[in-house]
Design a protein around this nucleic acid. Structure first.
Lengths: 146, 146
DNA sequence: TCGAAAGTGGGAAAAAGTGGGAAAGAGTAG
DNA sequence: CTACTCTTTCCCACTTTTTCCCACTTTCGA
Protein backbone atom coordinates (compact mmCIF):
# COMPACT_ATOMS: atom_id res chain seq x y z
CA UNK A 1 0.00 0.00 0.00
CA UNK A 2 1.41 3.31 1.03
CA UNK A 3 2.52 5.21 4.12
CA UNK A 4 0.96 8.05 6.05
CA UNK A 5 -0.61 8.91 9.34
CA UNK A 6 -4.19 10.16 9.21
CA UNK A 7 -6.85 11.13 11.71
CA UNK A 8 -10.50 10.30 11.07
CA UNK A 9 -13.44 9.94 13.35
CA UNK A 10 -15.75 7.01 13.71
CA UNK A 11 -19.32 8.13 13.04
CA UNK A 12 -22.36 6.99 14.99
CA UNK A 13 -22.87 4.14 12.53
CA UNK A 14 -19.37 2.81 13.21
CA UNK A 15 -18.11 3.87 9.84
CA UNK A 16 -14.53 4.97 9.34
CA UNK A 17 -13.13 6.86 6.37
CA UNK A 18 -10.19 5.36 4.53
CA UNK A 19 -8.00 8.23 3.27
CA UNK A 20 -8.36 8.75 -0.46
CA UNK A 21 -4.63 8.36 -0.99
CA UNK A 22 -4.66 4.92 0.55
CA UNK A 23 -7.95 3.90 -0.97
CA UNK A 24 -6.65 4.08 -4.50
CA UNK A 25 -4.10 1.42 -3.58
CA UNK A 26 -6.69 -1.10 -2.41
CA UNK A 27 -7.59 -3.55 -5.16
CA UNK A 28 -11.18 -4.73 -5.43
CA UNK A 29 -12.74 -2.44 -2.83
CA UNK A 30 -12.52 -4.98 -0.09
CA UNK A 31 -10.07 -5.50 2.71
CA UNK A 32 -9.29 -7.93 5.54
CA UNK A 33 -9.55 -6.60 9.06
CA UNK A 34 -8.16 -8.39 12.13
CA UNK A 35 -6.69 -7.92 15.59
CA UNK A 36 -3.19 -6.47 15.74
CA UNK A 37 -0.51 -7.49 18.18
CA UNK A 38 -0.94 -4.33 20.23
CA UNK A 39 -4.32 -2.73 20.91
CA UNK A 40 -4.98 -1.88 17.29
CA UNK A 41 -6.49 -3.37 14.15
CA UNK A 42 -4.57 -4.61 11.16
CA UNK A 43 -5.86 -4.26 7.61
CA UNK A 44 -4.54 -6.28 4.73
CA UNK A 45 -5.28 -6.66 1.08
CA UNK A 46 -6.36 -10.18 0.13
CA UNK A 47 -2.97 -10.83 -1.31
CA UNK A 48 -1.07 -9.75 1.80
CA UNK A 49 -3.47 -11.59 4.06
CA UNK A 50 -2.85 -14.79 2.15
CA UNK A 51 0.85 -14.42 2.90
CA UNK A 52 0.23 -13.84 6.60
CA UNK A 53 -2.09 -16.83 6.78
CA UNK A 54 0.24 -19.10 4.96
CA UNK A 55 3.15 -18.21 7.18
CA UNK A 56 1.03 -18.74 10.29
CA UNK A 57 -0.91 -21.79 9.24
CA UNK A 58 1.62 -23.35 6.94
CA UNK A 59 4.43 -23.65 9.41
CA UNK A 60 2.39 -24.73 12.38
CA UNK A 61 0.20 -27.56 13.58
CA UNK A 62 -3.18 -27.97 15.19
CA UNK A 63 -1.41 -29.99 17.85
CA UNK A 64 0.89 -27.22 19.06
CA UNK A 65 -0.32 -24.89 21.75
CA UNK A 66 1.47 -21.78 20.56
CA UNK A 67 0.26 -22.36 17.05
CA UNK A 68 -3.32 -22.53 18.24
CA UNK A 69 -2.86 -19.33 20.16
CA UNK A 70 -1.61 -17.50 17.09
CA UNK A 71 -4.50 -18.83 15.07
CA UNK A 72 -7.03 -17.72 17.60
CA UNK A 73 -5.48 -14.37 18.17
CA UNK A 74 -4.70 -13.36 14.59
CA UNK A 75 -6.34 -15.62 12.04
CA UNK A 76 -9.71 -16.29 13.62
CA UNK A 77 -10.81 -12.68 14.25
CA UNK A 78 -10.24 -11.72 10.61
CA UNK A 79 -13.19 -10.38 8.67
CA UNK A 80 -13.55 -9.11 5.16
CA UNK A 81 -14.97 -5.60 4.88
CA UNK A 82 -16.23 -3.69 1.88
CA UNK A 83 -15.13 -0.13 1.22
CA UNK A 84 -18.37 1.73 0.40
CA UNK A 85 -18.63 4.10 -2.53
CA UNK A 86 -17.83 7.11 -0.40
CA UNK A 87 -14.69 5.42 0.90
CA UNK A 88 -15.71 4.18 4.33
CA UNK A 89 -15.54 0.79 5.99
CA UNK A 90 -17.74 -0.52 8.78
CA UNK A 91 -15.80 -1.70 11.81
CA UNK A 92 -17.38 -4.88 13.25
CA UNK A 93 -18.30 -4.50 16.94
CA UNK A 94 -15.93 -7.12 18.37
CA UNK A 95 -12.96 -5.61 16.59
CA UNK A 96 -13.98 -2.10 17.53
CA UNK A 97 -14.14 -3.08 21.17
CA UNK A 98 -10.84 -4.93 21.01
CA UNK A 99 -9.04 -1.85 19.70
CA UNK A 100 -10.92 0.40 22.12
CA UNK A 101 -12.00 2.68 19.29
CA UNK A 102 -14.05 5.54 20.64
CA UNK A 103 -14.32 8.46 18.25
CA UNK A 104 -11.04 9.84 17.02
CA UNK A 105 -8.98 7.19 15.23
CA UNK A 106 -5.52 7.14 13.71
CA UNK A 107 -4.92 5.25 10.48
CA UNK A 108 -1.34 4.25 9.75
CA UNK A 109 -0.09 3.13 6.40
CA UNK A 110 2.87 0.80 6.86
CA UNK A 111 3.75 -0.10 3.29
CA UNK A 112 2.19 -3.53 3.03
CA UNK A 113 -0.63 -3.10 5.57
CA UNK A 114 -2.62 -0.59 7.59
CA UNK A 115 -3.25 -0.11 11.27
CA UNK A 116 -6.21 1.52 13.01
CA UNK A 117 -5.74 2.88 16.52
CA UNK A 118 -7.86 4.82 18.92
CA UNK A 119 -6.15 8.20 19.02
CA UNK A 120 -5.72 8.16 22.78
CA UNK A 121 -4.22 4.66 22.79
CA UNK A 122 -1.86 5.54 20.00
CA UNK A 123 -0.59 8.68 21.68
CA UNK A 124 -0.11 6.70 24.89
CA UNK A 125 1.69 3.90 23.03
CA UNK A 126 4.13 6.32 21.39
CA UNK A 127 4.75 8.17 24.64
CA UNK A 128 5.40 4.95 26.57
CA UNK A 129 7.81 3.73 23.95
CA UNK A 130 9.67 6.93 23.13
CA UNK A 131 12.77 6.06 25.12
CA UNK A 132 12.82 2.54 23.72
CA UNK A 133 12.51 4.06 20.27
CA UNK A 134 15.47 6.35 20.84
CA UNK A 135 17.59 3.42 21.98
CA UNK A 136 16.63 1.45 18.90
CA UNK A 137 17.45 4.46 16.73
CA UNK A 138 20.92 4.68 18.31
CA UNK A 139 21.47 1.00 17.60
CA UNK A 140 20.61 1.47 13.98
CA UNK A 141 22.92 4.46 13.87
CA UNK A 142 25.74 2.22 15.03
CA UNK A 143 25.12 -0.33 12.33
CA UNK A 144 24.29 1.78 9.35
CA UNK A 145 25.77 4.93 7.89
CA UNK A 146 22.91 7.28 7.11
CA UNK B 1 21.05 18.21 -0.97
CA UNK B 2 22.74 21.25 0.44
CA UNK B 3 23.34 22.98 3.76
CA UNK B 4 21.87 26.08 5.30
CA UNK B 5 19.63 27.34 8.04
CA UNK B 6 16.55 29.25 6.92
CA UNK B 7 13.57 30.81 8.61
CA UNK B 8 10.16 30.72 6.93
CA UNK B 9 6.68 31.02 8.27
CA UNK B 10 3.83 28.59 7.88
CA UNK B 11 0.88 30.35 6.24
CA UNK B 12 -2.75 29.86 7.21
CA UNK B 13 -3.08 27.06 4.66
CA UNK B 14 -0.22 25.15 6.27
CA UNK B 15 2.13 25.85 3.42
CA UNK B 16 5.84 26.24 3.96
CA UNK B 17 8.33 27.74 1.55
CA UNK B 18 11.32 25.64 0.57
CA UNK B 19 14.29 27.97 0.03
CA UNK B 20 15.06 28.41 -3.65
CA UNK B 21 18.65 27.27 -3.17
CA UNK B 22 17.53 23.96 -1.78
CA UNK B 23 14.64 23.58 -4.17
CA UNK B 24 16.86 23.35 -7.19
CA UNK B 25 18.47 20.28 -5.67
CA UNK B 26 15.20 18.35 -5.33
CA UNK B 27 14.65 15.98 -8.22
CA UNK B 28 11.12 15.56 -9.53
CA UNK B 29 9.44 18.27 -7.46
CA UNK B 30 8.36 15.85 -4.81
CA UNK B 31 9.78 14.98 -1.44
CA UNK B 32 9.17 12.54 1.46
CA UNK B 33 8.23 14.06 4.80
CA UNK B 34 8.27 12.12 8.08
CA UNK B 35 8.76 12.33 11.84
CA UNK B 36 12.30 12.97 13.00
CA UNK B 37 13.85 11.40 16.09
CA UNK B 38 13.52 14.65 18.01
CA UNK B 39 10.53 16.97 17.76
CA UNK B 40 11.13 17.90 14.14
CA UNK B 41 10.31 16.68 10.65
CA UNK B 42 12.70 15.01 8.28
CA UNK B 43 12.60 15.49 4.53
CA UNK B 44 14.18 13.08 2.09
CA UNK B 45 14.44 12.71 -1.62
CA UNK B 46 12.92 9.48 -2.91
CA UNK B 47 16.34 8.00 -3.32
CA UNK B 48 17.43 8.74 0.25
CA UNK B 49 14.11 7.58 1.65
CA UNK B 50 14.48 4.26 -0.08
CA UNK B 51 17.74 3.74 1.78
CA UNK B 52 16.18 4.62 5.13
CA UNK B 53 13.26 2.28 4.50
CA UNK B 54 15.43 -0.58 3.50
CA UNK B 55 17.52 -0.28 6.61
CA UNK B 56 14.36 -0.22 8.73
CA UNK B 57 12.06 -2.61 6.92
CA UNK B 58 14.49 -4.81 5.10
CA UNK B 59 15.14 -7.53 7.62
CA UNK B 60 12.26 -7.16 10.04
CA UNK B 61 8.92 -8.80 10.66
CA UNK B 62 5.39 -7.82 11.51
CA UNK B 63 5.76 -10.06 14.51
CA UNK B 64 8.71 -8.33 16.19
CA UNK B 65 7.98 -5.64 18.71
CA UNK B 66 10.95 -3.42 18.05
CA UNK B 67 10.39 -3.59 14.32
CA UNK B 68 6.81 -2.45 14.76
CA UNK B 69 7.92 0.46 16.91
CA UNK B 70 10.41 1.66 14.32
CA UNK B 71 7.85 1.27 11.57
CA UNK B 72 5.24 3.24 13.43
CA UNK B 73 7.58 5.96 14.47
CA UNK B 74 9.49 6.53 11.23
CA UNK B 75 8.05 4.66 8.26
CA UNK B 76 4.32 4.98 8.85
CA UNK B 77 4.17 8.76 9.25
CA UNK B 78 5.96 9.30 5.94
CA UNK B 79 4.06 11.10 3.22
CA UNK B 80 5.03 12.23 -0.21
CA UNK B 81 4.52 15.93 -0.77
CA UNK B 82 4.59 17.92 -3.97
CA UNK B 83 6.52 21.15 -4.17
CA UNK B 84 4.06 23.58 -5.82
CA UNK B 85 5.06 25.86 -8.63
CA UNK B 86 5.84 28.71 -6.27
CA UNK B 87 8.09 26.47 -4.20
CA UNK B 88 5.96 25.56 -1.21
CA UNK B 89 4.99 22.26 0.37
CA UNK B 90 1.90 21.49 2.40
CA UNK B 91 2.60 20.08 5.84
CA UNK B 92 0.05 17.35 6.70
CA UNK B 93 -1.79 18.02 9.99
CA UNK B 94 -0.50 15.03 11.98
CA UNK B 95 3.10 15.87 11.13
CA UNK B 96 2.61 19.54 11.85
CA UNK B 97 1.23 18.69 15.27
CA UNK B 98 4.00 16.24 16.00
CA UNK B 99 6.69 18.84 15.31
CA UNK B 100 4.70 21.48 17.16
CA UNK B 101 4.95 23.85 14.20
CA UNK B 102 3.20 27.09 14.99
CA UNK B 103 4.20 29.90 12.67
CA UNK B 104 7.90 30.57 12.46
CA UNK B 105 9.83 27.52 11.26
CA UNK B 106 13.49 26.74 10.81
CA UNK B 107 14.59 24.69 7.81
CA UNK B 108 17.95 22.98 8.10
CA UNK B 109 19.80 21.56 5.15
CA UNK B 110 22.01 18.66 6.31
CA UNK B 111 23.60 17.41 3.09
CA UNK B 112 21.51 14.34 2.40
CA UNK B 113 18.28 15.47 4.08
CA UNK B 114 16.39 18.43 5.51
CA UNK B 115 14.86 19.14 8.88
CA UNK B 116 11.94 21.37 9.77
CA UNK B 117 11.67 22.70 13.33
CA UNK B 118 9.38 25.07 15.06
CA UNK B 119 11.60 28.07 15.75
CA UNK B 120 10.89 28.02 19.48
CA UNK B 121 11.57 24.30 19.83
CA UNK B 122 14.77 24.60 17.87
CA UNK B 123 16.11 27.44 19.97
CA UNK B 124 15.20 25.53 23.13
CA UNK B 125 16.79 22.34 21.79
CA UNK B 126 20.07 24.09 21.03
CA UNK B 127 20.13 25.82 24.41
CA UNK B 128 19.38 22.62 26.32
CA UNK B 129 22.03 20.68 24.47
CA UNK B 130 24.87 23.15 24.40
CA UNK B 131 26.88 21.36 27.09
CA UNK B 132 26.23 17.97 25.53
CA UNK B 133 27.37 19.45 22.23
CA UNK B 134 30.67 20.48 23.80
CA UNK B 135 31.16 16.96 25.12
CA UNK B 136 30.38 15.50 21.72
CA UNK B 137 32.82 17.90 20.13
CA UNK B 138 35.57 16.69 22.50
CA UNK B 139 34.79 13.07 21.71
CA UNK B 140 35.02 13.67 18.01
CA UNK B 141 38.19 15.62 18.54
CA UNK B 142 39.71 12.48 20.02
CA UNK B 143 38.79 10.41 17.00
CA UNK B 144 39.47 12.79 14.19
CA UNK B 145 42.45 14.92 13.37
CA UNK B 146 41.18 18.36 12.44
C1' DT C 1 17.02 52.84 -9.75
C1' DC C 2 15.61 49.26 -12.37
C1' DG C 3 15.02 44.41 -13.54
C1' DA C 4 14.84 39.80 -12.29
C1' DA C 5 14.15 36.39 -9.04
C1' DA C 6 12.02 34.96 -4.78
C1' DG C 7 8.27 35.01 -1.64
C1' DT C 8 3.22 35.87 -0.13
C1' DG C 9 -1.67 35.95 -0.19
C1' DG C 10 -5.82 34.70 -1.78
C1' DG C 11 -9.63 33.09 -5.16
C1' DA C 12 -11.88 29.45 -7.71
C1' DA C 13 -12.46 24.78 -9.15
C1' DA C 14 -12.14 20.17 -7.95
C1' DA C 15 -11.86 16.54 -4.79
C1' DA C 16 -12.68 14.57 -0.43
C1' DG C 17 -15.43 13.92 3.56
C1' DT C 18 -19.92 13.97 6.32
C1' DG C 19 -24.53 13.24 7.61
C1' DG C 20 -28.65 11.39 7.00
C1' DG C 21 -32.69 9.18 4.57
C1' DA C 22 -34.73 5.26 2.44
C1' DA C 23 -34.77 0.51 1.25
C1' DA C 24 -33.71 -4.07 2.37
C1' DG C 25 -33.15 -7.62 5.62
C1' DA C 26 -33.29 -9.88 10.08
C1' DG C 27 -35.48 -10.74 14.29
C1' DT C 28 -39.52 -11.06 17.37
C1' DA C 29 -44.08 -11.31 19.01
C1' DG C 30 -48.83 -12.09 18.21
C1' DC D 1 -47.51 -17.39 9.14
C1' DT D 2 -47.79 -12.61 9.22
C1' DA D 3 -47.05 -8.09 10.63
C1' DC D 4 -44.34 -4.97 13.02
C1' DT D 5 -39.95 -3.16 14.54
C1' DC D 6 -35.25 -2.62 14.67
C1' DT D 7 -30.86 -2.94 12.45
C1' DT D 8 -27.98 -2.80 8.60
C1' DT D 9 -26.67 -1.33 4.14
C1' DC D 10 -26.58 1.51 0.35
C1' DC D 11 -26.79 5.80 -1.89
C1' DC D 12 -27.51 10.66 -2.49
C1' DA D 13 -26.69 15.47 -1.70
C1' DC D 14 -24.52 18.89 0.96
C1' DT D 15 -20.31 20.81 3.14
C1' DT D 16 -15.66 21.28 3.85
C1' DT D 17 -11.05 20.86 2.52
C1' DT D 18 -7.56 20.69 -0.70
C1' DT D 19 -5.26 21.92 -4.71
C1' DC D 20 -3.99 24.67 -8.30
C1' DC D 21 -3.00 28.91 -10.27
C1' DC D 22 -2.59 33.85 -10.73
C1' DA D 23 -1.17 38.32 -9.45
C1' DC D 24 0.91 41.29 -6.26
C1' DT D 25 4.90 42.42 -3.12
C1' DT D 26 9.43 42.23 -1.57
C1' DT D 27 14.24 41.48 -1.90
C1' DC D 28 18.60 41.29 -4.05
C1' DG D 29 21.99 42.38 -7.37
C1' DA D 30 23.65 45.00 -11.19
Amino acid sequence: MITGEFRYSLDEKNRLMIPARIRVEIPGNSIILTRGVEQCLWLFTHEEWKKVCQSLVGSTSLFQEKARLMQRRIVAPAQETEVDRTGRIIIPPTLREFAGLKKECIILGIQSYLEIWDEGSYTAYLAENESRFKEAAEEIGNKIAL
